[in-house]
């Protein structure tokens, strides 16, 4: 620091710094503090509307899913189920379903067959307890069905908000897009707290009790496959699917990211994903990539397969194929 002569002011004496507190200054100070405190209270007033139990000590102290002891996990499942019943009026059968040994899931979708009916997107909602404002609100569905112009696979000119009288429209074809369960998943790489990761069977999951809601994974995803709970999910009791698991379709808290889990609470118990079961044209094929005799491997070995955005290097476990 310099000692520029122009910058040397006369120092204040001790008396100047310690000006005695008079009755007048004290009262002024007290009045100002009162106004300040009142202002602060007024500013924080919305916090009074917080629902009781929205921030609990148990949840603050909870560890990451992969560090939980089995008994802790059971306790957490019970408390989550109780809270869901209290808040949404339906007691879920909430479990933790582990990956099966020797299984890596893959999904293939036949673009020649898809007619753009969006039944898969609706079935996804019915299965996975996403928030919705009304029956037509499929914004939180994990599947976005794109309508593309014949002649190219050009996403830039596609629309997800098509609404014709009937489908398929001439000159159009349809491409449902959901999480591609990438082998080189950008979303899990960027998460600052490892709240999202690939399971042993290749499914990318989110620990909704660990996610901090920074949404970096959404920025990283090249497939627009992740959804964020901008508000507490709105669900009517009759819309709730009570068959729930911790890492997939349990009702999410506010402020966390969610995504397609290949319906792991179904598929890890030998069933098909909800979107496959509902598909009226049989465009969807699901199975074990490690089983050489599986239908999915037959498709990959015998059909013309297209990988969405292969150039970004994500190596999806989701494939598109054509009949001829």
């Amino acid at each position: 620091m310099n000692n520029d002569p122009q910058n040397v002011a006369s120092p204040k004496t001790i008396e100047q710094v310690y000006r005695p507190i008079t009755r007048r200054t004290f009262l002024k100070g007290a009045a100002a503090s009162m106004v300040g405190v009142a202002g602060l209270m007024a500013a924080l007033k919305p916090l009074l509307e917080l629902e009781s139990g929205s921030v609990t000590l148990d949840e603050l102290l909870q560890r990451h899913y992969r560090e939980l002891k089995p008994e802790d996990l059971q306790r957490i499942l019970a408390s989550l189920a109780a809270r869901a019943e209290q808040e949404y009026g339906v007691r879920p059968n909430l479990r933790d379903v582990k990956p099966m040994a020797g299984v890596e899931f893959g999904y293939a979708l036949n673009l020649s067959r898809c007619i753009g009916c969006r039944k898969c997107a609706h079935a996804c909602l019915a299965e996975n307890n996403q928030s919705r404002d009304d029956e037509d609100d499929i914004e939180m569905s994990y599947i976005r069905v794109l309508e593309l112009n014949q002649g190219a696979i050009n996403l830039e000119t596609s629309t997800a908000y098509f609404d014709p009288e009937t489908v398929p429209q001439p000159d159009k074809y349809y491409m449902p897009v959901q999480c591609q369960q990438c082998r080189e998943s950008p979303c899990t790489k960027v998460c600052p707290v490892q709240a999202t990761w690939q399971e042993a069977d290749g499914i990318v999951v989110v620990d909704y009790n660990w996610c901090i809601g920074c949404r970096y994974c959404m920025a990283a995803c090249p497939y627009d496959a992740r959804r964020f709970n901008y508000k507490k999910p709105t669900l009517k009791p009759e819309q709730i699917n009570p068959n729930q698991s911790y890492l997939s379709n349990r009702i999410r808290p506010k402020g966390v990211v969610e995504k397609c889990t290949f319906c792991l609470h179904r598929t890890r118990e030998g069933k098909y994903p909800a979107c496959l079961e509902v598909c009226p044209t049989g465009a969807r094929v699901f199975g074990n990539l490690l089983d050489p005799n599986s239908e999915i491997n037959y498709i990959l070995n015998h059909k013309r397969v297209y990988i969405l955005k292969e150039d970004v290097g994500t190596q999806p476990r989701f494939y598109y194929f054509f009949d001829k």
Binding site: L60, V193, A195, C211, I212, G255
Partner: peptide, 9 residues
């Protein structure tokens, strides 16, 4: 952050 209460994560 969607969950500022979990900042300590």
């Amino acid at each position: 952050l969607g969950r500022p209460d979990r900042f300590h994560h």
